[in-house]
Structures are given as C-alpha cells and as structure tokens.
C-alpha cells in the first residue's frame, strides 16, 4: 500500500450500484405488497363469510397464468445466461420469448376480467372481488412495467455498442430480478385468491 491509496478510504460495497439499487427498489415493493396481503388477511378474517376462490374464479385460467409466469421466469434467466456468455442471438431469442409469455399472461388476465365484467362482476360486487381486482390489477401493472423494461433491453441489444458496455449485463440482471419478484408475488396471489 502506498501513500496515495492509504489516503483514499475504501467506499466500495462490493455490490454493483445497479444491483443494490434494484434490491432496494424491490425492498420497497415487498413493503407495498405486504401491506396489501395484510389488508387481505384482515378483511378476510373479519368478514362474516368469504367464498372459496375456486367457486368464484376460473382456476384453470389461473393455473395457466401461473405456468406462463413461471416459464417466463426461466426464459428471462436464460436470457441473462446468454447475455453472460455474450451470445447475442441467444439473448434476443430468450428475451423475445419472455416478452411473448408476458403478453400471453396479460391476454389471459384480460379474458378473465372480460368474462367477469360480462357477468356484471366488478370491484364493487363484494369485498372478495374488491381485493381480487385490486391485487391482480396492481400485479398486472407490474407486468406492464416489466414488459416496458424488457422491451427496452431487447431494443438496446440491437445496438452494437451496447454489447461493449460493461453495464449492460447488470441491466439484464436487474430486469431479471424485478421479473422474478413479480413472479413470486403471483406465486402467493394464485393460491390466496383462486384456491383458498
């Protein structure tokens, strides 16, 4: 150690700023969804009656959406693996597949909502449906946000200079972390609303 390095204090956390930033953002998201799940528990426990999810909602479509979202979690981690190895074509293929699956999720959800609205069911129908539309609606907005970010990464991948940018892999990893979080939220939403 020379005099110059000794004078400069080490401030690096050892974690990239992008990753730390995404994890802190996810921390705030955990608080947001914790609040909503707590509200769900409070309303459910204090309700005089609460329907079984499978009597009120379409379980096959919910199961299909769960499978779609789990598959999209795999495809985005595969996109990260391809980006890690600088396999440009592989990254584009897996990221495009992720986007296609995300769109499928929203289409299935729109079909579900459409069917419920056609039966005259809406958030004001009951406390159960108010909780259902609020939680799945907010989750759906998170899906839309993920689609925007992932589309941006796919677009950037067509620029040659992006593959020379050392930050690009971190961006892909950050987008993946966010997408997996959205998947985890659905993993709890599905049984809580559709099955229990």
């Amino acid at each position: 150690m020379n005099a110059t390095t000794a004078a400069v204090p080490q401030t690096s956390s050892g974690i990239s700023n992008a990753k730390l930033g995404v994890w802190l953002f996810l921390a705030s998201e955990i608080m947001l969804f914790s609040t909503l799940f707590t509200t769900y528990i409070v309303l459910r426990l204090s309700a005089t009656s609460w329907p079984w999810g499978w009597t009120a909602l379409n379980v096959p479509l919910g199961t299909l959406n769960t499978a779609i979202l789990i598959t999209s979690s795999v495809t985005i981690v595969m996109a990260y693996a391809r980006a890690y190895d600088r396999d440009v074509a592989g990254f584009r293929k897996w990221m495009a597949l992720t986007l296609a699956l995300s769109a499928c999720f929203l289409v299935v959800k729109a079909f579900e909502y459409g069917h419920e609205f056609s039966l005259g069911i809406g958030p004001s129908t009951s406390v159960f449906y108010a909780v259902y539309f609020t939680m799945t609606g907010l989750h759906g907005l998170h899906i839309v946000g993920g689609i925007i970010v992932n589309s941006g990464l796919l677009y950037m991948s067509y620029r040659k200079d992006c593959w020379e940018d050392p930050l690009f892999l971190g961006r892909v990893e950050g987008a993946g972390l966010y997408w997996h979080f959205v998947d985890i939220v659905w993993i709890f939403l599905f049984p809580a609303l559709y099955l229990l």
Binding site: K19, W23, A27
Partner: peptide, 24 residues
C-alpha cells in the same frame, strides 16, 4: 449484505403487519 438487507425489510414488514393483524 443483500440477504441482510432483505432480513431488515422482512423485519420492518412484520412490524407493520403484526399490529394490523390485531384488528383481524
């Protein structure tokens, strides 16, 4: 460090949830 950050988040989420659960 990241698991420790998450542990802190879970702790504070629990701090928020437990008093509310009382009303449940």
């Amino acid at each position: 460090r990241i698991p420790r950050i998450l542990a802190a988040v879970v702790f504070f989420a629990a701090m928020m949830i437990f008093p509310i659960l009382d009303g449940a």
